[in-house]
């Protein structure tokens, strides 16, 4: 049975799909992947910050999910469990890349800092202009990557993925209070890093979604 349209995806809850995948129904796994692929993609990309690694790791997340789904007992929401797998694999990959000194070779595209500053200031001062885009994303991504891993993960889960604190605590295995204090510290650090590029009273145009790999 092959289903791919939105209505049929919505017809099944996560739990129902998980149950069907466990029974070996292939289409249910396809639906689960389709439902979560973009969220996993974004999470991986924001935590890892390396486009060349993003797709591979996102695939690995779902392969791991398929392999270990039998162990999922439904103690937490399926999405929380999937995010936990994603975060753990990201951490492992970061360790692996760090050991291989990947961070030295893989610098984010080196637009001159003054150019970035000029672009962002212009965007902030004039929201009607179609600027921002890649430069701003590059800038924030770079400053995100400058944070240490633990702070970055919490910042991404909360301020980009908009997850509730309780879910973040479950995903990271941290106490609720620790999650909150780390988040505030991470925000503070990021604000200080972004300070040179910010102008008071600014607003920014939201970016349209784009398909991964467009910039490769």
């Amino acid at each position: 049975m092959q289903t791919s349209n939105v209505e049929e995806q919505a017809a099944f809850s996560d739990d129902e799909l998980v149950r069907r995948v466990k029974k070996g129904e292939d289409f249910a796994f396809s639906l689960l992947v389709r439902r979560y692929q973009n969220r996993v993609f974004n999470l991986v990309h924001r935590i890892l910050g390396i486009p060349e690694e993003t797709e591979d790791l996102a695939q690995e997340v779902f392969v791991t999910l398929h392999r270990s789904l039998e162990q999922f007992r439904g103690d937490c929401a399926f999405s929380t469990w999937l995010y936990r797998i994603t975060v753990n694999l990201c951490k492992n990959r970061l360790k692996y890349l760090f050991r291989r000194n990947f961070h030295k070779a893989q610098e984010i595209s080196e637009t001159a800092e003054t150019d970035i500053q000029a672009h962002v200031s212009m965007a902030l001062a004039n929201p009607e202009q179609q600027l921002l885009g890649r430069e701003l994303e590059t800038l924030i991504q770079r400053e995100l990557l400058a944070l240490d891993e633990e702070h970055r993960i919490i910042l991404v889960l909360r301020d980009i993925e908009h997850l509730p604190y309780e879910h973040i605590a479950e995903i990271t295995g941290l106490a609720l209070g620790t999650v909150k204090s780390r988040l505030h510290r991470a925000r503070s650090a990021l604000r200080q890093q972004m300070q040179p590029y910010l102008a008071t009273g600014a607003s920014i145009r939201p970016q349209q979604g784009r398909r991964f790999g467009d910039d490769r």
């Binding site: 797709e55 924030i140 972004m194 979604g209």
Partner: peptide
């Protein structure tokens, strides 16, 4: 500036997985 930083983060473009992502995952499985 904190408000602006958070605003920038929340407006980061969301990426979409490639159209053949599901097939690639199933191949790997």
């Amino acid at each position: 500036s904190l408000r602006q930083t958070l605003s920038l983060m929340q407006r980061l473009p969301s990426l979409e997985a490639p159209s053949d992502f599901v097939q690639k995952v199933k191949r790997k499985v």
